[in-house]
Amino acid sequence: MSTITFTGNIGKSQGLKFSNDGKPRLSFSAAETARVKDQSGQYVDGGTTWFNVTLFGYTAEALDAQIAAQGGKGKVIVTGRMSTREYEHNGEKRESLDVVADSVGLVPRNPQQGQGQQAQQPAQQNQWAAAPQQPAWGNGPDKEPPF
């Protein structure tokens, strides 16, 4: 099996299910669409790759609740073990990309998305606003970095 990390949009979720011994399992599909440059230098959407993702345990329960809170939609970052399997659908041979996830994170939605501009945070709420402009190693007698 190969290890994979990808970011994709949640497709169809089969919902949270439990095994006979009570272990939770969440299965859903996720789509990743590549962006490529065309000959004019403009970015266009390339092909879409669909993954069947399965997640187990407490993280499956937590992710299911988070997905439900977002109306069944959202973007995820998935890391796990990928395998392929062949199957037949209406007499046509197909291949499926299956991922048993080690970790899945739900990407937070931008509340300003679609309004044309990023939301600006006031300086007192932005944890990076107070960060020093110069690196600590550049302010002392030794102006060289430590490596």
Rank of each mutant, 00 (worst) to 15 (best):
S2H: 13
T3Y: 15
I4K: 00
T5N: 05
T5H: 04
F6W: 03
F6S: 00
G8T: 00
N9I: 02
N9T: 06
N9E: 09
N9A: 09
I10M: 00
I10N: 00
G11L: 00
K12E: 07
S13N: 08
Q14A: 12
L16T: 08
K17I: 04
K17P: 03
F18E: 10
F18D: 08
N20P: 09
D21L: 08
G22H: 04
K23Q: 09
K23R: 08
K23C: 03
K23Y: 05
P24V: 13
L26H: 00
S29L: 04
A31S: 14
E32H: 10
E32M: 02
E32S: 04
R35M: 11
R35E: 11
V36N: 09
V36Y: 11
K37I: 01
K37P: 00
D38M: 06
Y43L: 12
V44C: 03
G46R: 03
G47M: 10
G47I: 05
T49I: 14
W50V: 11
F51D: 00
F51Y: 13
N52E: 15
V53P: 01
V53T: 03
V53Y: 01
F56E: 02
F56Y: 08
G57L: 07
Y58H: 14
T59M: 09
E61C: 03
E61H: 01
A62K: 14
L63S: 06
L63E: 06
L63N: 05
L63W: 03
A65C: 03
I67H: 06
A68C: 09
A69Y: 02
G71D: 09
G71N: 07
G71P: 06
G72H: 01
K73R: 12
K73H: 08
K73C: 04
G74V: 11
V78M: 00
T79S: 11
R81Q: 15
R81C: 04
M82K: 02
M82P: 01
S83T: 07
S83K: 08
S83E: 07
S83Q: 12
T84C: 05
R85E: 14
R85V: 03
E86K: 14
Y87W: 10
E88H: 07
H89N: 14
H89S: 13
G91M: 10
E92T: 15
K93V: 09
R94P: 01
E95I: 14
S96W: 06
L97A: 13
L97K: 15
D98K: 12
D98L: 10
D98R: 09
V99H: 08
V100I: 15
A101N: 00
D102F: 09
S103R: 14
V104E: 00
G105E: 08
G105A: 12
G105C: 04
L106S: 08
V107N: 01
V107H: 05
P108S: 08
R109N: 12
R109K: 14
N110M: 01
P111K: 13
Q113N: 07
G114Y: 04
G114F: 10
G114V: 04
Q115K: 15
G116W: 03
Q117S: 14
Q120R: 11
Q121K: 15
Q121W: 14
P122F: 08
P122L: 06
P122D: 11
A123G: 06
N126H: 07
Q127F: 12
A129R: 11
P132K: 03
Q133G: 12
Q133K: 15
Q134P: 04
P135W: 08
P135D: 11
W137F: 10
G140F: 06
G140T: 05
P141T: 13
K143D: 04
E144S: 14
P146N: 02
P146G: 02
P146E: 04
